[in-house]
Amino acid sequence: MIWDLKTTDCIQTFKPPPPLRGGDASVKSVYIFPKNTEHIVVCNKTSSIYIMTLQGQVVKSFSSGKREGGDFVAACVSPKGEWIYCVGEDRNMYCFSYQSGKLEHLMKVC
């Protein structure tokens, strides 16, 4: 949901695409995208993370490529929006390049 800070009215409601296995996935985090403040980065408990418009349209997505155990549980964006970092249930940190859309680094985390 997107809220108007002045009126406290809900001005927009949308959901990221559903997981491949069906059903809904809980949203873990939402960030304003530094390169374009009309875009947000949405991390929900699926194997994909999305850059979406404030109207709910998917602009770009990044995926762990895993059907089992690769769901993201946390994410953050570098200050200039060049990198998107995600931590998966598989205890890996995924580092995606916004520019290329590719997985650039994969690192085990505790």
Rank of each mutant, 00 (worst) to 15 (best):
M1D: 10
W3R: 06
W3V: 08
W3E: 01
D4P: 00
L5S: 11
L5V: 13
K6H: 06
K6P: 01
K6I: 07
T7D: 01
T7Q: 04
T8A: 11
D9C: 12
C10A: 06
C10M: 07
Q12S: 08
T13H: 07
T13L: 03
F14P: 09
F14W: 12
K15I: 00
K15G: 02
K15P: 00
P17H: 03
P19C: 02
R21Y: 08
R21E: 12
R21Q: 11
G22K: 00
G23H: 07
D24W: 00
D24E: 11
D24K: 00
A25G: 09
S26D: 09
S26G: 13
K28I: 00
Y31S: 12
I32G: 11
I32S: 12
F33T: 01
F33K: 01
P34A: 07
P34V: 11
P34H: 03
K35P: 05
K35Y: 03
K35V: 05
N36H: 06
N36Y: 02
T37W: 08
H39D: 13
H39N: 15
I40E: 06
I40D: 02
V41F: 08
V41Y: 10
V41K: 07
V41P: 11
C43T: 05
N44H: 11
K45P: 09
K45V: 07
K45N: 14
T46D: 05
S48Y: 05
I51S: 03
I51F: 04
I51G: 05
M52N: 05
T53M: 06
T53W: 02
T53D: 02
T53F: 02
T53Q: 08
L54V: 04
G56H: 00
Q57M: 09
Q57G: 09
V58G: 03
V58T: 08
V59H: 07
V59C: 11
V59W: 06
K60E: 12
G65N: 03
K66G: 05
R67V: 13
R67K: 15
R67T: 12
G69K: 10
G70C: 06
D71N: 12
F72L: 04
V73C: 05
A75D: 00
A75M: 00
A75H: 00
A75E: 00
A75G: 05
A75F: 00
C76N: 09
C76D: 10
C76Q: 03
V77M: 06
P79A: 10
P79M: 06
K80L: 15
K80R: 15
G81I: 07
G81C: 10
E82V: 06
E82W: 08
W83V: 10
W83C: 07
I84N: 07
Y85L: 14
C86F: 03
V87K: 08
V87D: 08
G88I: 06
E89S: 06
E89T: 05
N92T: 09
M93P: 00
M93S: 01
M93H: 04
Y94C: 14
Y94D: 13
Y94H: 14
Y94F: 15
Y94P: 15
C95F: 08
C95M: 13
C95Y: 12
F96S: 09
F96Y: 06
S97L: 10
Q99C: 14
Q99N: 11
G101V: 07
G101D: 05
K102V: 13
K102F: 02
L103C: 03
L103N: 08
E104I: 13
E104V: 15
H105K: 14
H105C: 14
L106M: 13
K108Y: 06
K108S: 11
K108V: 08
V109Q: 03
